[in-house]
Design a protein around this nucleic acid. Structure first.
Ligand SMILES: [Mn+2]
Ligand SMILES: [Mn+2]
Ligand SMILES: [Mn+2]
Ligand SMILES: [Mn+2]
Lengths: 219, 219
DNA sequence: ATAAAAGTTTAGGTTTGTCTAAATTAAATT
DNA sequence: AATTTAATTTAGACAAACCTAAACTTTTAT
């Protein structure tokens, strides 16, 4: 089997590559994993020997078919555990990521299967991220970044693309969660921030940084 | 915090010492952990430096107060996860141990607390082993080994002291589980095996090996 | 086209947890 | 009490996963 370290590299490559599309750089990985580039080079040589990645020295790395299968399995487990923590153990969405980072490495096919059943085959995790199916498919959803809405346009929050507690707690404070109704009240061209009304109620100004991390569907 | 390897040593010392009472030998540990005695010596030096054990070279090892606290926390997590797997995910009692061995190392106080609540503060795990409380107490239950019963005496199975799938599957086959009513029909002095009737029904002969691993309370 | 800068890899270490083989200590036998 | 045997520890290695410093490619700027 694969070690926890290997699994974390595979997951990081998957995420940085934009679901397997592009090649990923050594420094990109070292940033994401909080290791040094030298350590990444070592690991890439190893993953390459195991045929989990295509690795061309100095030119980046991509997952093989097998590597992608492995990545999706880990992500499936991570997101199922997040659902479990929120729905069954009353965790909040800002408390789950760190724990799921540990649980995703527990090895048992039966466990994942049964957990999925127990949760009623959920489609998305508490942050709105889709859960890969047992067959290894990752359902795509049509959705747009909040940043792309024009004045007057409405949307319902379906996904947030950052699981850091600090970010999620900020959303808690302004009153944004999955399912929240938003409408763009005004646009501030100076810095591309938007004034957003929340649940047809009070409005806040969100920075373009934040706007890029929130996704909505048409209401 | 403590590594998975350290936690496994602490748990092994706890179990071999009979709940902290006696000193434990290097070979005893190497047997239980499937490592070589030399590796055990190394680890004991390390645990001793961390004040988790009292270690006197050539004379065995015992857990410190702190070591016992750590041991009971790990055992608490192990047994709570076993309950979860059986009661919520429909695992059988012979399927849970291996998975719980992994889950017991997940670090999150909140997780243990919430899991305990979710399960309704269970007292015993699927093998009848008591679950240490949050305060670190291990409730003792009066119970006797099946081996100690005389002819005609009855008992209700409350605990089995071996979690190997092969053993538990053997019990499944003869029809013994937690709560099963047993009565000693006859004693075979030659090898100390007993003929046991199961649920007032068909009877089987159990070896003294097996009899030592099954515990009963008075019906 | 060359030189500087940025990104990446290699060389050589460290820590953790394991191993084998040799040395040491304790226990059991004579 | 001396000797043999068994248990345990130490010495020296190794793999995994990380590090720093130095060397090497690739990219960017002059
Ligand atoms: Mn997450
Ligand atoms: Mn998530
Ligand atoms: Mn168990
Ligand atoms: Mn158990």
């Amino acid at each position: 089997m694969h070690s926890t370290a290997e699994e974390n590299y595979i997951k990081a490559i998957y995420k940085l590559s934009g679901n397997g599309a592009n090649a990923v750089s050594t420094t990109g990985l070292s940033d994401m994993l909080a290791t040094k580039p030298a350590s990444v080079s070592d690991m890439l040589r190893k993953l390459s020997a195991k045929d989990l990645v295509h690795y061309v020295k100095y030119h980046g790395v991509q997952l093989t078919e097998e590597g992608q299968r492995v990545a999706l399995k880990i992500i499936r487990k991570h997101r199922l555990w997040e659902v479990f923590l929120v729905q069954k153990l009353n965790f909040t969405w800002d408390e789950v990521h760190e724990v799921a980072e540990q649980m995703e490495h527990v090895k048992s096919e039966l466990l994942v299967q049964r957990l999925d059943e127990f949760l009623g085959h959920p489609r998305v995790d508490p942050h709105g991220d889709p859960i890969p199916t047992e067959a290894g498919e990752l359902p795509e959803m049509e959705q747009r970044a909040l940043a792309s809405l024009e004045v007057e346009q409405k949307g319902v929050v379906c996904r947030v693309k950052d699981s850091q507690p600090a970010f999620l707690q900020y959303l808690n404070r302004v009153g944004i969660q999955i399912g929240t109704q938003l409408q763009v009240v005004d646009k501030i061209p100076y810095d591309n921030s938007l004034e957003i009304s929340i649940n047809k109620n009070k409005s806040v100004i969100l920075s373009s940084d934040v706007l890029e991390k929130i996704f909505v569907i048409n209401p």
